[in-house]
Design a protein around this nucleic acid. Structure first.
Length: 844
RNA sequence: GGGCGUUUAGCUCAGUUGGCUAGAGCACUGCCCUUACAAGGCAGGGGUCGGCGGUUCGAGUCCGUCAACGCCCACCA
């Protein structure tokens, strides 16, 4: 094809130009005629669609894109979908704040509802369906914005393969998988104490917990034995003395051996409770005797379950102590309870402290401490523990066999970097209960069940009514189970719909099944599953990665992917963790505008796999400079000719030497990509390329301007090298490489075969000629630079000392060296390597 | 309390199985408007490789230990 090289190549507008082109040509469209062994499938993380995109996302997605592009060029058909995580609390919150609304599921749907144009204060209450419509509306807008950013960043995603975690297909997939779990006994419901967020009004799973250091106060409280002797305990939650069901001490603790098996009376309330023994009681803490309440913390739950203690709960779902006097209190105890009834836990705590003190049950001064307290990761107040009926999926937290199987799955997964596998192992080993998947929220995938209402009016939770696969997705709140009529909802002999939705991870854990259309396209499914790659962040190994592996283990008895790449954490330019609360979040768009998409990509590709990386504008500048260099160097190298020169013309030793070095670069870069080390592949390519432009191109410049076979050799070598470099850079810098490719080649560089050693080696050889000559040239340049002269300044005879093989190598490129150095000639001396050059008297 | 990671030039980072005077870019200094590129090129100064101890002919690299920082996990009495 004729060469069409611009005079003044530029990066401006390349993103838009090539994105349009790729879209119209379907460059990245998945060819579903390919079979599984020909396909490379990526389980792309669906970014949370909640406002602006974070640099951390850009970082990871660009790194993944380099793998997608490499694999595509290396001969695989790449299945590279994109999902949007628009399901769950972030979206709910965003809608609440954006419009100033709150969901009240008891309200009827208002078909004429018009969303407020600005946030309302106080919030307007709307029905669940209206609320969900607002969620959909807002996320659709956000998804467009996100897609635009990803396209601008040059992700080679197949944009016809998208999904949203709340769309019908996803809900159907999620509900089907849940029903399969139910049938196989992997999902079950249970009435049990759960960690509860009193603000979000929902149960919370272990994976969503975090400990936060909070100030607290140790109160030393006296309980009394029937003979009046005091037994001291320490507690940070004296408001729960009314919920006390026992005291506990370690069985080996000599100090309290006599107490075990006796009973004591609780202060103020006068409830008789046993003193029991349990290994978890820590003799080092407090007095060595602890109060067991239902429920102050998760240890209480353990004790309650293992010691078969009664339940005396007073904390309600709103975080207040119940109004009515508990039935286990009477007399003075009931009166004492009246003082704290209806209060929030922290208010009741202060009140109890006063009461205990007044009654002489508080020993010494309360002691201020800082201790870890469990929070929902998105929550603002400590979690409480309430008893409720919830749905669970088994995850090995209560079964050693399953736990072992899951640990073994983790061993078979390839982790990049490999130490990330340790985090998975620790998580699985540390699980202490099954996966709680039900949430008492509004915007999410409904648990697809109804329950019969018995003639007595009681709901029979043990016999759920299950929809057929064809009915999915269902909304049990508005859909009616087969065999019933809407009029029977909530009536004796009728049914009720399950109100809870599923945890967001219960759906996200199925991204391979969603993207691969497990439920409705078996033909596609068998071409892409199990997938090759799961790229993701380190902080969601315990959630997304683990739960995906679990679902695949149950559903397909195998791993969902062969490899998991875990990207590093992103820090702001001052190496602080970026977070919204610190206000130091850097967003990509302004950077793309300032430095260009390729510069931002270059920065992301410079972060080593799994290594925390700071946002660094300096690195982006280098990336921009590299992209410009590719334009200019290619323009120069290709500009000597108007059509391809036969590679057979490559005969000059230095040309062959350059190509030998390039073949080595190809080998190293390929090997690095196979190890998922994109950063190494870029590094060696870049280093090789700068040597190519700084030394090789300078050395052959004068020859290339002349005619004849020697020039033809240079022309062909330049062209061969540019062809290889463009492909080596293509995974990193997709726009500029495509631009240059289009000057002289048909088709997209991104669908070209990855460069191979084989294609270069027949034109390569002759030993380290280029290396040797480059060393001499560097010395000559240094002489000129120290003399503060132009690089064009003439020098006299250059004396090169060296081993015979080095001298031979230099001789093979003598003409190029003499011309480039503007030297009178070369003199060769055997000996240690040295170069002597003197400037000519005058080069005026 | 446990685990993982990091610590190399003023800054941001490479350094792949231990091997010749430890590399790059930015920043700094000097020179060059050389016909691909001045949003460039050429060259230069700058490092007790976190501390201590060990293995080895040889350690930035392996082992032990300590420290700082970051992340993850942990039964809140």
């Amino acid at each position: 094809m004729a060469r069409n090289i611009p005079d003044k190549p530029s990066l401006e507008g390349l993103e838009e130009k090539w994105n349009r082109h790729w879209e119209s040509r379907g460059t990245y469209r998945f060819d579903r005629s390919k079979t599984r062994d020909q396909v490379y499938a990526i389980d792309t993380p669906p970014p949370t669609v909640s406002g602006s995109l974070h640099m951390g996302s850009v970082f990871g997605y660009v790194q993944t894109d380099t793998h997608a592009r490499y694999r595509r060029m290396a001969g695989k058909e790449v299945f590279y979908p994109m999902g949007w995580d628009d399901n769950g609390l972030p979206t709910e919150r965003r809608v609440q704040n954006f419009y100033g609304v709150r969901c009240d599921p008891s309200l009827p749907y208002d078909p004429d509802f018009v969303p407020p144009t600005e946030a309302q204060d106080p919030p307007v209450s709307i029905s669940r369906r209206n609320f969900i419509e607002l969620c959909h509306g807002l996320t659709e807008e956000d998804e467009k914005v996100f897609e635009n950013i990803w396209r601008t960043m040059g992700l080679s995603v197949d944009w016809t393969q998208t999904y949203a975690t709340i769309d019908d297909h996803t809900r159907r997939t999620s509900q089907q998988a849940f029903l399969n779990n139910l049938v196989r006994g992997e999902a079950y419901s249970q009435e049990a104490p759960v960690l509860w967020d009193i603000d979000f009004q929902t149960a919370v799973a272990q994976a969503e917990l975090e400990d936060r250091e909070r100030p607290g106060t140790y109160h030393r409280v006296a309980f009394h034995r029937p003979d009046g002797a005091a037994v001291h305990i320490e507690t940070t939650r004296p408001e729960l003395i009314c919920s006390c069901v026992a005291l506990v001490a370690h069985p080996g603790d000599e100090r309290h051996r006599g107490l075990i098996g006796t009973t004591v009376l609780t202060p103020l309330f006068g409830v008789e409770v046993p003193v029991v023994a349990h290994e978890l009681a820590d003799p080092e803490k407090g007095t060595g005797v602890a109060m067991i309440c239902t429920f102050g913390d998760t240890t209480d739950v353990t004790w309650w379950r293992e010691l078969d203690l009664p339940t005396r709960a007073v904390i309600q779902r709103d975080g207040r102590l119940q109004e009515e006097t508990p039935d286990w209190l009477e007399g003075d105890g009931a009166a004492a309870y009246g003082e704290i009834a209806g209060l929030y836990a922290n208010q009741a705590r202060r009140k109890m402290t006063e009461l205990l003190s007044a009654a002489g049950n508080l020993v010494g001064e309360p002691r201020e401490i800082v201790h870890p307290v469990k929070f929902y990761e998105r929550g603002e107040r400590p979690l409480e523990i309430v008893t409720s009926r919830q749905w669970y999926i088994r995850n090995g937290g209560r079964e050693d066999d399953l736990r072992k199987e899951l640990l073994e799955r983790g061993e078979h997964l390839r982790w990049v970097p490999d130490f990330m596998g340790v985090r998975y192992r620790h998580w699985v080993e540390g699980l202490n209960g099954d996966w709680l998947i039900s949430r008492q929220r509004f915007f999410g995938v409904a648990i697809p069940l109804w329950y019969p209402v018995l003639d007595t009016g009681d709901v029979d939770y043990e016999s759920p009514i299950v929809p057929s696969s064809e009915q999915l997705p269902v909304d049990p709140g508005s859909d009616v189970p087969t065999g019933y009529a809407e009029s029977q909802r909530g009536r004796p002999g009728g049914f009720v719909g399950e109100l809870d939705i599923m945890d967001t991870w219960a759906t996200s854990s199925l991204t391979p099944q969603i993207a691969g259309h497990w439920v409705d396209d078996p033909d596609l499914w068998e071409r892409v599953f199990p997938m090759d790659l799961r790229p993701q962040g380190p902080e969601i190994i315990r959630t997304w990665l683990f739960s995906s592996l679990l679902r695949s283990h149950f559903e397909h008895n195998g791993l969902p992917w062969h490899t998991a790449t875990i990207n590093g954490w992103i820090l702001d330019p001052d190496r602080k963790k970026m977070s919204k609360s610190k206000g130091n979040v850097v967003t990509p768009m302004p950077l793309i505008e300032e430095y260009g998409a390729e510069a931002v990509r270059y920065w992301a590709c410079n972060g080593r796999p799994g290594v925390d990386t700071a946002v660094d504008f300096g690195v982006m500048k280098i990336g921009r400079r590299l992209a410009i260099k590719i334009l200019n160097a290619s323009r120069f190298a290709l500009g000597f000719t108007t059509a391809d020169v036969d590679p057979q013309a490559i005969a000059e030793p230095i040309d062959r030497s350059m190509l030998a070095g390039l073949a080595g670069t190809v080998a190293t870069a390929t090997e690095a990509f196979e190890r998922y080390d994109y950063a190494r592949a870029l590094e060696v390519t870049e280093k090789s390329f700068w040597g190519f432009t700084d030394d090789y191109v300078e050395l052959v410049k004068s020859r290339a301007y002349e005619g004849g076979p020697a020039a033809a050799s240079a022309h062909a070598a330049l062209q061969l090298a540019v062809g290889a470099y463009l492909r080596l850079f293509a995974p990193f810098l997709p726009f500029v490489t495509e631009e240059v490719w289009s000057w002289w080649r048909e088709g997209s560089v991104h669908r070209m075969p990855w460069p191979t050693v084989a294609e270069l080696e027949s034109h390569a050889g002759d030993g380290p000629v280029l290396e040797a000559v480059a060393l001499v040239l560097a010395e000559v340049r240094r002489v000129k630079s120290e003399a503060r002269r132009s690089m064009r300044a003439a020098v006299g005879i250059v004396e090169v000392s060296g081993e015979p093989d080095v001298l031979d190598a230099v001789r093979l490129a003598e003409t190029d060296l003499v011309n480039t150095a503007n030297a009178a000639g070369i003199e060769y001396l055997e000996g240690e390597f040295a170069v002597r050059a003197e400037l000519a008297e005058s080069d005026e």
